[in-house]
Design a protein around this nucleic acid. Sequence first.
DNA 1: GTGAAAGCGCTAACAA
DNA 2: TTGTTAGCGCTTTCAC
Lengths: 340, 340
Amino acid sequence: MKTITIKDIARELNLSTSTVSRALRDSSEIGIETKARVLELAQRLDYNPNPVALSLLSSQSHDIGVIVPEIANPFFAIVIAGIEDVAFAQGYHVVIYQSHEDYEREVLNVKHIANRRKDGLLVSIATATTDYSHFKNLHERGFPIVFFDRICEEIDTHKVLVDDFEGAYLATEHLIKQGCDRIAHVSGPDHLLISRRRLHGYRAALLDYGKPIQDDWVVSSSYDAKNSLEIARKLLTRPDRPDGIFASSDNIAIGCHAAIIEMGLSMPDEIALIGFSDLPISALLNPPLSSVAQPAFEMGRSAAELLINLIKNPGKYTTPISNVLKTSLMARKSSLRKPV
Amino acid sequence: MKTITIKDIARELNLSTSTVSRALRDSSEIGIETKARVLELAQRLDYNPNPVALSLLSSQSHDIGVIVPEIANPFFAIVIAGIEDVAFAQGYHVVIYQSHEDYEREVLNVKHIANRRKDGLLVSIATATTDYSHFKNLHERGFPIVFFDRICEEIDTHKVLVDDFEGAYLATEHLIKQGCDRIAHVSGPDHLLISRRRLHGYRAALLDYGKPIQDDWVVSSSYDAKNSLEIARKLLTRPDRPDGIFASSDNIAIGCHAAIIEMGLSMPDEIALIGFSDLPISALLNPPLSSVAQPAFEMGRSAAELLINLIKNPGKYTTPISNVLKTSLMARKSSLRKPV
DNA sequence: GTGAAAGCGCTAACAA
DNA sequence: TTGTTAGCGCTTTCAC
């Protein structure tokens, strides 16, 4: 893989490498004619500057790292699309890392990002992570980090999230207004902030509307339809079967959806169901799944903007911003007992 | 972001950088005691070699690039998991690129991969791509490339794919055996090889079983449920409504599934449906979607193995291998009229 | 066994 | 306006 370097051009044109370098960067103090010759030859030889050399020189890579739990999760895939949208326009390349919800893997990813001199990090934390020191270390060394969705409260930097409490409140309120009395909640992993916030929203709505709050109607699932399918099966065979389920994510809701169908229960009449995130697939289920829509693309855009801002103002302290985005209720057949 | 370099260690220990370097790489010709001191200090200072410098020196990055159309497509997400599985074990990092089915984007990705001195490329081609010169150029310069799933026939290198013809044949045969007479095919984009091969398999099965072949029962869709939903709506309102649909992918099938439900047709009795790929979501639909399973994870593993092989034997010509993986039929409710 | 020097590709003082 | 030199972090001859 012989590649053209600035040296080749210099030799060919009987110039020094610095002259060529300057001509290429369009420096003001270069003979107009020399510049033209250099540009022409570079063009003809299909010269591309070696980004590795540039990176070594400047300690910048124009790459930003993004760590998500799983790219297979459409929510994260859309967030990444939003990130790419902004990053690309500003000349940054997005390097995607998956933690696979695993702590060790996340630590390795962070290490890779720091070692490879990425310019910044966008991250949504793995379920398994309870120790945040790998992020803290980076942050303390001045490395630009922005959290999104699954944030870390303990680190004082920009964050982008949705109002999980409000979204969950809306979802639960909706079920109540559709006539549900015994509303269960299939929550996400307990220690995740988003799970807890959604749980609180659910509780608050029940409380406000004077509905019964039963601890054993709250069951926890991983963000995985296979797992929630099992859990929903158990939930639905209990003697005091709920007549409504608020699932903490659409993936969880999809498992519940399958369980309800499998058991031959009618949806929404015997059981109404609503999820969280409004994945593209949700509207295509049978019956279509109600959900709380999150502006995933916008979340990605916002996170990328904040990060690039951080990168472009190194050292300069900016008060950390927490951008809380709005959710909106998408009521569909799975929960709509009454005509709208 | 002050980082520890080999220089810091050398200064501290009153050694030269070359000695430190050798000690770190465990060179045989270094004083055992010196080595210990270096290692200890490196450990204590949390020294990490700068991969950028290494990369500049060796023109290797230990990164392999993967270009997929969309990471949001679970099929590709699983292939990537397979790739990561092998790459990780061999000390390579996987850098994911999305073409978003766009030709220009794919060209940019290829350029980035070459410029950034990635060690190799795994790629599944974008729908929009009809000109393969960006791949050809790389390949001719000796850059290791392996195609998977959506391959390029014109380039003489390793490929990993499934037997699309056979899979499509199996699917169509299955519908026939379930009593379907008028079987439509919602194909993928026409110029993709996988679309064409699946179409051929469909045709061959109809032919073998003496079923009617009607050109207007083959309609083309992008690999996107929204698009196929529209297309299925049209297909299903035609006077000669088909009684079976073989969709060229599960994404396409999901759109058809939604259309069938929406129109109140019974599945599988009035219309039987089968897709291709067997995405995790498919079994959770209502009714569960039949599909032709592809070993996506295995495909990723195999592609990564072939690529790493290529990388580790530079220059050495190896006869290109086309690894054709087996599909298997997953018959579910959406097409099962008769008990198994 | 260890050090000095060169060089990967490039840019940025500093000269001229 | 252009060339020379040094250096980003590291490895690798080549000396000693």
